[in-house]
């Protein structure tokens, strides 16, 4: 059980993020929750590429007669995939913050309840 603590942490992070997205009233906090949620997944990918006692996946020299032992190096593929996922996450967060800023300009508040109240008032 203790060996798989990375999965436990990933689930905790994800649930924390999901909870913040649902329960928090402040829309900036919702975005922070979204970022935590994505970080959980990034951690998940990174941790599945790690091996105990392995090195970073960079070869300092290459000898034709001495084959490379893959078990000595961490899997670089997951890390590269996550570079892309981080870029996507940053773009999403940036767009989300822009929208939050526009919402603030329109309603003069970040609080979800006050925004919904104002929409109700406009309707009446």
């Amino acid at each position: 059980m203790i060996l798989k603590f990375n999965y436990v942490i990933m689930i905790i992070l994800m649930m924390l993020g999901l909870w913040a997205m649902i329960a928090k009233k402040n829309i900036i906090k919702k975005l922070i929750g979204m970022a935590i949620f994505q970080t959980g997944i990034i951690l998940f990918y990174i941790s599945m590429g790690a091996k105990s006692g392995s090195n970073i996946p960079i070869l300092d020299y290459y000898d034709r007669y001495k084959p490379i032992d893959a078990a000595q190096y961490a899997n670089p593929l997951t890390q590269i995939l996550m570079l892309t996922a981080i870029v996507v996450g940053v773009a999403t967060l940036g767009l989300g913050l822009t929208l939050a800023r526009k919402i603030y300009d329109d309603y003069k508040t970040f609080n979800e309840d006050e925004i919904l109240q104002e929409i109700k008032n406009e309707h009446d």
Binding site: L31, F37, I41, F44, T92, G96, L99, I103, I115
Partner: peptide, 24 residues
Amino acid sequence: ATLATFYYLLIGTVGACFYLIGVA
């Protein structure tokens, strides 16, 4: 539209992330 899209952004990101976990 901005407010509706903001919620869509949160929900849509969760959807795409679920897909990503599945792929993992």
